[in-house]
Simulated scan of single mutants.
Amino acid sequence: MQTYMQNWTQVTEFVMAGFAGVHEARLLFFTLFFIMYLFTLAENLAIILVVGLDHCLRRLMYFFLTHLSCLEIWYTSVTVPKMLAGFIGVDKGKNISYAGCLSQLFIFTFLGATECFLLAAMAYDRYVAICMPLHYGSLVSWDTCIRLAAACWLIGFLTPILPIYLMSQLTFCGPNIVDHFFCDASPLLALSCSDVTLKETTDFLVSLAVLLASSTIIAVSYGNILWTLMHICSAAERRKAFSTCAAHLTVVSLFYGTLFFMYVRTRVASSINFNKVVSVFYSIVTPMLNPLIYSLRNKEVKGALCRAFFPKSWKGQ
Rank of each mutant, 00 (worst) to 15 (best):
A235K: 03
C173F: 00
C145A: 15
C245W: 01
C183Q: 03
D179R: 09
I146Q: 12
S192C: 08
L162C: 06
V196P: 00
G156W: 07
I155R: 01
D143T: 10
T201M: 04
S214R: 05
S214I: 08
M230A: 14
R147S: 06
I232F: 01
T202C: 11
A150M: 03
F157Y: 05
D195I: 09
T244M: 15
A190P: 01
I161S: 00
D195A: 12
L229D: 01
L170E: 14
L205T: 05
S207L: 02
A219G: 14
T202F: 05
L154G: 13
D143K: 14
H180D: 15
T171P: 00
S141I: 02
L166P: 00
S168N: 02
A150W: 00
S186T: 05
C245D: 07
T159Y: 04
C152F: 08
V210F: 11
I164C: 13
Q169S: 10
F172C: 01
T216W: 04
L212R: 01
F242E: 12
S243A: 11
I177A: 02
I225G: 00
L188M: 12
F182R: 13
G174C: 04
L188W: 00
F157M: 09
L191D: 12
W153E: 04
I225P: 02
L158M: 08
A185F: 03
A149N: 11
T201D: 04
G223I: 01
S207W: 13
P187H: 15
Y165L: 03
S243V: 08
F172D: 10
I164D: 04
S243L: 08
F181C: 10
A209D: 05
F204L: 13
E200G: 00
F242R: 03
V210L: 01
S215I: 00
K240A: 14
T159C: 07
I164E: 03
P163T: 10
L148F: 08
I177E: 01
A190F: 02
I155F: 14
G156V: 06
R238D: 02
I161Q: 02
S141D: 07
V210Q: 00
A213S: 09
L208H: 02
F242Q: 09
T171S: 15
C152A: 15
A219N: 15
W227E: 13
R239G: 11
F242K: 03
V196N: 08
L158N: 10
A190S: 13
G223H: 09
L154W: 06
I155T: 13
V178S: 05
F172E: 09
A190N: 13
L162N: 03
V206Y: 05
T144D: 02
I155G: 05
